[in-house]
Simulated scan of single mutants.
Amino acid sequence: MKAIIPAAGLGTRFLPATKSIPKELLPVLNKPVIQYVVEEAFEPEGVDGVVIVNSHEKPQIESYFTVDGEFESLLQSRGKAAEAQVVHEASSLPVSFVYQDDPKGLGHAVHCAADDIDGQPFFVLLGDYFVPDRKMCVRMAEVSKAHGGASVIAVAPVPADQVSRYGIIAGECVGSLDGNSAEDEQEGAVWKVTGLVEKPAPKDAPSHLFIVGRYLLSPRVMELLADQGVGAGGEIQLTDAMERLLAEEEMYALVVDPAEGCDTGTPAAWAATNARLALRDEASCAAFLEAMGNEAADKLA
């Protein structure tokens, strides 16, 4: 089974920095965002490779995941064996690349990896969101297994006045991941999806659950993307192919805690994620607060 990570976007929210540095390589503490996502992708049993959908305008991403023996030797010669080891581990991850040089939407990006899927189910992990404990996709795989290999998406509750910003699911709660009773929009609840509604008005929203950027999809989705027409924004939308899939196959959703993951999609969210993980890490917390200065540390407190 493969996991697909779309990474061909221009990162315009981070300009001018992303003129020369892909936003996927911006660091959260000492690792780039995309490494967190790649490591998360390998956590579910059966995932044996990650396909990054890149742009030829961003060769730095491919370089990052390529072994550089000369650089590792330099680190070794300077007594930095531990640093050489972490560099080698990152560049040795089983990552492959396909390219999307004409940005036509998320659905088009996912379909660029069609030849690598080989008729198997596949994960899609959006690259501006990662889950530090890496367990979200593992739980999604458990839901899929419990429902005959059906497609599963991760969803999270959003306040009613914000549903118009997101894609919202329609359906009904059919149980929970642990087999216990669960409130409809409580963490761990499992829904049977009957529809996907893009940015509904609050009064028209069929639920308050939005897709958080983690998908485990039937190979049929890849077939449907092959002839998927242009949708919202003049782009080929993954959700449109998923909507078509509902006419043929069952789909489920796992309700997750939105705070379980870390958003890096905007400069403010990226900075907040760095602060959040620095505060969580016992070794770096004190140094982080000291570097922030008294006034900033008091505000965080």
Rank of each mutant, 00 (worst) to 15 (best):
V190M: 04
G195L: 05
Q237W: 14
A232H: 13
E248N: 06
M242H: 07
M222Y: 00
I211T: 08
E198Y: 14
G231R: 01
G234L: 10
E235N: 14
E243R: 12
E248F: 06
R220I: 12
L225M: 05
A226I: 04
P206Q: 00
L216G: 03
A201S: 12
S207C: 04
E243T: 13
D204A: 12
G229S: 07
R220M: 11
G231L: 04
T239S: 14
L209A: 06
A241I: 11
A241E: 06
E235G: 08
E185D: 15
E249R: 03
I211D: 02
T239F: 12
V221D: 03
L245W: 10
W191L: 09
P200G: 02
E183R: 15
L224E: 10
Q228Y: 05
M222T: 02
L225F: 01
S207V: 01
A232L: 13
I236K: 10
A226E: 14
G213H: 02
D184S: 14
W191Q: 11
E249N: 09
V197E: 09
R244K: 13
Q228R: 10
V212Q: 01
D204M: 09
K192F: 08
V190C: 03
L209M: 08
Q237R: 15
Q228F: 08
L245I: 12
L224T: 05
D204N: 11
G229V: 03
A247W: 03
D204Y: 06
W191I: 09
Q186G: 14
E187L: 10
M242Y: 13
E187H: 10
K203E: 15
L238W: 02
A226Y: 07
P206Y: 01
L196N: 01
K192N: 06
E249C: 09
E223Y: 04
I211H: 05
K203F: 07
G213N: 04
S207Y: 00
G195V: 09
